[in-house]
Amino acid sequence: MRADGEQRSGRGSANSRVRGALLAVLALGAALGGCTPIEPWVKPYEREHLADPIMSLGRNSIAATYRDHVFETREGSHGATGAVGGGCGCN
């Protein structure tokens, strides 16, 4: 029953593929952030509900992340739980 023991070179090539992909996303993001051909369909003055603290993704984060940690300790999965963004978009 061979599991993962033989993939010694796997990490190296997986990492460089991921690095390349993330670099591409970053550059694309920089490009698109600079020129804004897409008009925001939710105007800044329409963001009242999004600015409400109950819509915040990071509300009570110190407790939420401890709770995530408990799950990751007791279960076999981890990752993809973070999120940033939303809010009033001020400034």
């Binding site: 990492n15 963001r47 009242e48 509900h49 993809a80 739980t81 940033v84 963004g85 978009g89």
Partner: peptide, 28 residues
């Protein structure tokens, strides 16, 4: 350990927002 993560938060309407997250980790 090595970990790479990507996250996207998108406001869809005045009342709705969405997030996507992807993460790849390696332990050795």
């Amino acid at each position: 350990h090595w970990g790479y993560s990507f996250g996207l938060t998108q406001i869809l309407t005045r009342n709705l927002l969405a997030t996507l997250n992807y993460e790849i980790d390696t332990d050795q």
